[in-house]
Simulated scan of single mutants.
Amino acid sequence: MSPKQQRGEATVDLVLTTALRVYAAHGQQGFTVGSVTAASGVSLGSLYHHFGSFDGLAAALYTRCMGELFDAMTAAVTRTRTARTGVHALVRSYLEFTREHRDAALFLHASAYSGYLAAHAEEISAAKEAKLAAIGAWTRRQVLKGEIVPLPGPLVEVLVMGPVGEAARRWLSSTYAFDLDEAERLLPDAVWRTLRPGPDA
């Protein structure tokens, strides 16, 4: 990698790290191109050079946070030996990521209806598919072995990610008094019961 490329990557990392910090400190209203350039010391021209637009920056930050979450889930599930422990690991790693990386989790959940997700849907979808590939392969192996109900991959994803995503959203929201410790104790088995092939599995 050339020195110029190294400087470019360092700038991208600085802007993304700063953007998340700005969002965590000031929320959606304070998350502006001016606040990010001021906090990072990166010029507006440089930001647009690397991200194309402020929406492009936000989409890149979303992709980065999403990748970190899925990397944590992949690392957790690939260390397991059974379908049950794998499902438990997926659920717990999502909730642990939410607790340990609150700023990233908050940005992911707050982005659900943001315009930049629609504007950059193709690249976000491609990044998600790549990051979920290992988890999808693990799930297909469990289905072939008869250890997980034979459902299409997207439905298995919904059954795992739906409950933990909602649990994380409630914990992150100031609207709810939500016990994440209790969720970590109870949700893994609750999700597993929706995926196991029978009551004796």
Rank of each mutant, 00 (worst) to 15 (best):
L90K: 06
G115V: 10
S174L: 09
P154R: 09
S114A: 12
L61H: 06
A130R: 11
T63C: 09
E129A: 15
T80R: 12
A168W: 08
A60V: 05
Y94K: 08
I148M: 04
L61I: 03
A58L: 00
H88M: 04
F97Q: 07
C65Q: 03
P154D: 11
R99I: 01
E122T: 08
H109T: 01
A130C: 12
E184Y: 15
R169C: 01
Y62V: 02
W138K: 02
A83L: 01
R169K: 05
H109W: 05
Y113E: 08
A59F: 02
V149W: 01
A126G: 06
A167L: 04
F178I: 07
A110C: 07
E147D: 07
A89Y: 11
Q142M: 12
L144A: 12
G153T: 06
L95G: 14
R81V: 08
E182F: 11
L151W: 13
K131T: 11
A127P: 00
K131F: 05
E182G: 09
A168Q: 02
H109E: 07
L144W: 09
R140D: 14
A167D: 10
T80M: 10
S173F: 10
D71S: 13
A58C: 11
T63P: 00
Y94Q: 15
F97S: 10
R92E: 07
M66G: 05
P150R: 14
P150N: 14
G67C: 03
T78R: 04
T78W: 06
A134I: 15
L132Q: 08
G136C: 09
V149A: 13
L61T: 14
A110Q: 06
L108I: 01
W171M: 10
